[in-house]
Design a protein around this nucleic acid. Sequence first.
RNA 1: GGGAGCAUAGCUCAGCUGGUUCAGAGCAUCUGCCUUACAAGCAGAGGGUCACAGGUUCGAACCCUGUUGCUCCCA
Length: 673
Amino acid sequence: MRYAIVGSDEFITIATTRPETILGDTAVCVNPKDERYKHLHGKKAIVPMVNREVPIIADDYVEMEFGTGCLKVTPAHDMNDFMLGEKHGLEVINMMNDNGTISEAGQLYIGMDRFEVRTKIAEDLTASGNLVKAEDLINKVGFSERSDAVVEPRLSLQWFVDMKELSKPALDHVMNEDIKFFPSKFKNSYRNWMENIKDWCISRQLWWGHRIPAWYSADGSFVVAKTQEEAIREFQSKGIAADATSIRQDEDVLDTWFSSWLWPISVFDGFYKKEEIDYYYPTNDLVTAPEIMFFWVARMIIAGYEYKGDLPFRNVYYTGIVRDKQGRKMSKSLGNSPDPIDLMKIYGADGVRVGMLLSSPAGNDLLFDESLCEQGRNFANKIWNAFRLVNSWESKVQPDAAQSPAAAVAVRWMQSRFNTVLTQLNDDYEKFRINEALMNTYKLVWDDFCAWYLEMVKPPFGSAMDKTTYEASVEILENLLKVLHPFMPFLTEEIWQFLRPREEGKGSICLATWPTPGAIDEQLTKQFDTFSEVVIGVRNIRKDKNIPNKEKVKLLVKTSASADTTFDAVVMHLCNIESIEYVDDKPGSCYSFVMTGTEYFVPFTANVDVEAERAKIQQELTYLQGFLKSVESKLNNERFVSKAPADVLEVERKKQSDTLAKIHMLEEQLASL
RNA sequence: GGGAGCAUAGCUCAGCUGGUUCAGAGCAUCUGCCUUACAAGCAGAGGGUCACAGGUUCGAACCCUGUUGCUCCCA
């Protein structure tokens, strides 16, 4: 469109996608550096159709390369134009009604819809010779999420809360960690928001909500009051005439967060009653989504300090957002959320719960995948089967049966192991590493309890179970149920009830106390590590050499240290070994494996492939020699030796000596084959 | 436009103060097993240029700079 310049026959051309808004134009703006328009600074232009004279102003805001480099300014109908208007003291003409039709202030097309006017005004501009060119282009237009109407910026009167002073304590107390965020990375965006906080617009043009308690009198002044009667008294005390017919309440309602920010207080009815809020406030943990950190969390903290003079909660745990496999947020409107009830029918409530939690690291999104629920169900099934096994022993218990050495060490180890993991779990929870707590619980139950402990104490087919081991097993399982309970409330309750008779009405696992870690036997832990490697070593030999599990084998041990027989009974039990013998000399004709300072031998059975044995040992040798080389190159590096701390050096030297010893043993073996 | 964050195995993620074999887990994959709690299971195995390019350091997935790609929040 072209705008005539006052006092000359020159025109200035401006591009717009909303030509109807020229009815509200109050300036034309160019970039001060733009040579094309320098001579126009301070002059006036005539807005077409309404023939209003408006100033031509200069501002850096205008991009010279965009469009014609010349901007029409409509402060009432564009946010950036509004800012220009404030800066340059421009007139504001609100040319649109709130139903999207042209208002009286627009002068022309009054009462017509804005889209009709857009077409009509193009015709009229053409007729008057002011339309230079029309072209199709694609631009970004906002649509209402609910009604799908095109959003039209329009100047309106709103209520704001001055946040500057109000928000200061909320920033400080999060920065100094009086209130902790998990994960802490959210402190950064919180600080950025709080340091640049804007006043809070609290009025909304909606039908439903808390209505703004502001009242206007006939002369346009206002008061804030709880009721109409109070408002009238308030007006009268100011000497303003007011009665029920002459005053009216603001029709706007409050932003939904304006009640939510009081939630930590109002949930205890804390503005009116003392008893509950005095007991509970401040609470411990708030669990919520990071996307409402500003809307809700920040404002609850602000309100807490403002109205209670204290923090509302100590920790804020931000969960991830559940997304579908395409990465889209799961939402009701998209309909991409699976029905949890259907999932529960397939995987069980606990299975679905575990599946979700397994992959929900704090602050990261979770891409929902049904296979996670399947994993949860499998875990539940595993626990149930473990219970079935322990439970089956009840009838096999013989009071006078002696506890086997294997079971005795297994119980001691499992108790110690439980305490180790429990300590870890407590730390995980302390740091809100919920999914790690779950994974550690999962491994404690599946690997330590089911795969190792139960196998170690399981009596051979047809044998009796002794009372000591049975009772220890029940107690261990009870403790496991307690740590599982937060993740699998239903299953653990069910088993809890079956495991022992419980007192009517008082026997729920919900009422059980979280276990406290007992002693950890470090020595036993180390012995177990060796033991488990021996078991794996024997299993590998059986597998590689096709020695059936049913066939008993012998195990020979040659060790430079004194023999440690703590776990021997368990090795025999788990690997079907008829005897373990400690020998001084390397036996011939054996399969073997090596661990630090100790060699293990299983005598050849039928069908030995000596060549294959040799190749295997050679392969391991090659690897160890390469490793030794890398360690030694480090140790031969003078700069490493002189600068690295003593303990790091010590570790490297130990690696060197261990490796040398291993290589020596393997070479001997190779020679003896 | 302003701000924050992320990039490690096929997938989802750990890796906390730079230092225990050029990296761990779960799932998935592959190979063997219906071994008396569990095949929804058991025993094993393979799989990685830690986005890319520089730099600092005796030593970098980790610290610094740049590049690329992605995500979120605000206006």
